[in-house]
């Protein structure tokens, strides 16, 4: 028999099956949490930290990775608090600097209104999300690739950096890779952020410290009233 727990998600009281992660519960209720190292059907990995959410009552809250954190009775979750969004934008900025040629990361930047990169871009072609490794092992039964070395030398490779004997050339690893798909205008190395499809930044956040709706994309409630509020809070 399934055990159901009650929790609060962005102010909403919801019932979810025990054993679900916060991310699964949020997606089930239509609230989008961005992820880089999570993919349905693969085991969660908790490495990219992009899926951070705030749990607990204000004042005693903390940030956890929603892809690995399981729901529990009475849990209070905010997926888009001011704190979460600030952290999320910082992470996206870091990923932009790591891998500005990735379309997935550029799209995240536009979606979450990250418009500057304060770090010198270092143009990796891999963000070590591990999706390819899990795809190969868990869905393709390949075990052809994996992590090797450690620290700053850690990377995904085949045994001995040689052509793998067990790879079936299924292409699954490339299919899931967030770094493999180039941004639409090509790498444009001198410009680490593209922002060609920039979305509107939620003015509601400045006022309520939480996003007020889950319109995707946000229509930014282009009301003068909000602008005034914003001006008041941030002189």
């Amino acid at each position: 028999m399934k055990i159901v727990v009650q929790m609060t998600l962005n102010g909403l009281r919801i019932d979810v099956d025990e054993g679900m992660t916060i991310l699964e519960a949020a997606r089930f209720y239509g609230m989008n949490i961005p992820t880089l190292c999570y993919l349905e059907g693969l085991s969660p990995y908790g490495a990219c930290r992009l899926c951070l959410v705030e749990i607990g009552m204000p004042g005693q809250s903390k940030l956890v990775t929603s892809c690995t954190y399981r729901v529990e009775e009475g849990l209070v979750v905010r997926t888009d608090s001011e704190w979460v969004i600030k952290r999320r934008k910082m992470l996206i900025e870091l990923y932009l600097a790591t891998c500005p040629s990735s379309k997935v990361i550029q799209d995240l930047a536009s979606k979450y209104h990250v418009t500057t990169v304060r770090f010198t871009p270092w143009h990796e072609d891999c963000i070590l999300c591990g999706l390819c490794v899990r795809m190969c092992a868990e869905q393709m039964q390949g075990k052809a690739i994996g992590f090797a070395h450690r620290g700053s030398n850690r990377r995904v490779t085949t045994p001995f950096d040689k052509e793998s004997e067990v790879c079936r050339l299924c292409g699954g690893c490339m299919y899931v890779c967030p770094a493999c798909q180039s941004r639409c205008q090509g790498p444009q190395e001198e410009q680490p952020v593209c922002n060609a499809c920039l979305n509107l930044q939620q003015p509601c956040l400045d006022y309520f410290e939480d996003k007020m709706c889950f319109m995707d994309p946000c229509v930014a409630c282009e009301l003068d009233a909000n602008r005034e509020v914003k001006a008041k809070r941030r002189p």
Binding site: G146, A148, S164
Partner: peptide, 12 residues
């Protein structure tokens, strides 16, 4: 044991 797991440990 998959070779990649052995290689992972050997380089770690």
């Amino acid at each position: 044991i998959p070779l990649i797991d052995i290689y992972h440990a050997a380089t770690f």
